[in-house]
Amino acid sequence: MHTMWKGSIGFGLVHIPIKLYAATESKDIHFRSLHAACHTPIRYRKYCPVCEKTVENEEIVKGYEHQPGEFVPVTEEEIEEIRGKNARTVEILDFIRLEEIDPIYYNKSYFVGPSENGEKAYALLRQAMTDTGKIGLARFTFHSKRHLAAVRVYQNGLLLETLFYPDEIRPVERVPGLDKTTDVNERELETAKQLINQLTAPFDPKKYKNDDREALERLIADKIAGHKTVAPPQTAKPANIVDLLSALEASLAETPAKRPAAGTRPAKKKPLTAQKKKKA
Rank of each mutant, 00 (worst) to 15 (best):
residue 1 M to T: 00
residue 2 H to Y: 12
residue 6 K to Q: 14
residue 7 G to K: 00
residue 9 I to R: 03
residue 12 G to D: 01
residue 15 H to C: 00
residue 15 H to N: 07
residue 17 P to Q: 01
residue 20 L to I: 02
residue 21 Y to L: 13
residue 22 A to P: 06
residue 23 A to N: 04
residue 26 S to E: 14
residue 26 S to P: 01
residue 29 I to H: 01
residue 30 H to E: 05
residue 32 R to M: 06
residue 33 S to G: 03
residue 53 K to V: 09
residue 57 N to G: 07
residue 59 E to Q: 14
residue 61 V to Q: 08
residue 65 E to C: 03
residue 70 E to M: 10
residue 72 V to Y: 06
residue 74 V to H: 00
residue 76 E to I: 06
residue 81 E to I: 07
residue 83 R to W: 13
residue 85 K to P: 02
residue 87 A to E: 06
residue 91 E to A: 08
residue 94 D to M: 09
residue 94 D to E: 14
residue 94 D to I: 06
residue 95 F to L: 07
residue 96 I to A: 05
residue 97 R to M: 06
residue 98 L to E: 09
residue 100 E to A: 11
residue 100 E to H: 04
residue 101 I to R: 00
residue 105 Y to L: 01
residue 109 S to V: 06
residue 111 F to Y: 11
residue 116 E to Y: 09
residue 119 E to D: 10
residue 119 E to M: 13
residue 121 A to M: 05
residue 123 A to E: 09
residue 124 L to Y: 04
residue 124 L to V: 04
residue 125 L to I: 09
residue 127 Q to S: 15
residue 131 D to P: 03
residue 133 G to C: 07
residue 137 L to N: 02
residue 143 H to M: 13
residue 146 R to P: 00
residue 147 H to F: 13
residue 153 V to S: 08
residue 154 Y to F: 14
residue 154 Y to V: 04
residue 156 N to C: 04
residue 156 N to V: 08
residue 158 L to A: 00
residue 168 E to D: 06
residue 171 P to H: 15
residue 173 E to C: 08
residue 178 L to Q: 06
residue 180 K to I: 00
residue 183 D to Q: 10
residue 186 E to A: 11
residue 186 E to P: 10
residue 186 E to D: 07
residue 190 E to G: 13
residue 191 T to M: 15
residue 193 K to W: 14
residue 194 Q to V: 12
residue 196 I to S: 09
residue 198 Q to K: 15
residue 204 D to I: 14
residue 208 Y to D: 02
residue 208 Y to F: 15
residue 209 K to Q: 13
residue 214 E to K: 00
residue 216 L to F: 05
residue 218 R to A: 12
residue 218 R to S: 05
residue 221 A to K: 03
residue 226 G to A: 10
residue 227 H to F: 03
residue 228 K to P: 00
residue 229 T to M: 11
residue 229 T to L: 11
residue 230 V to L: 13
residue 231 A to I: 06
residue 232 P to T: 02
residue 232 P to H: 08
residue 238 P to L: 04
residue 239 A to W: 01
residue 242 V to R: 12
residue 243 D to A: 13
residue 246 S to Y: 05
residue 251 S to A: 15
residue 252 L to C: 10
residue 252 L to Q: 09
residue 254 E to M: 14
residue 256 P to A: 11
residue 260 P to H: 06
residue 260 P to I: 00
residue 263 G to W: 05
residue 264 T to R: 05
residue 265 R to E: 08
residue 270 K to V: 15
residue 278 K to D: 11
residue 280 A to P: 01
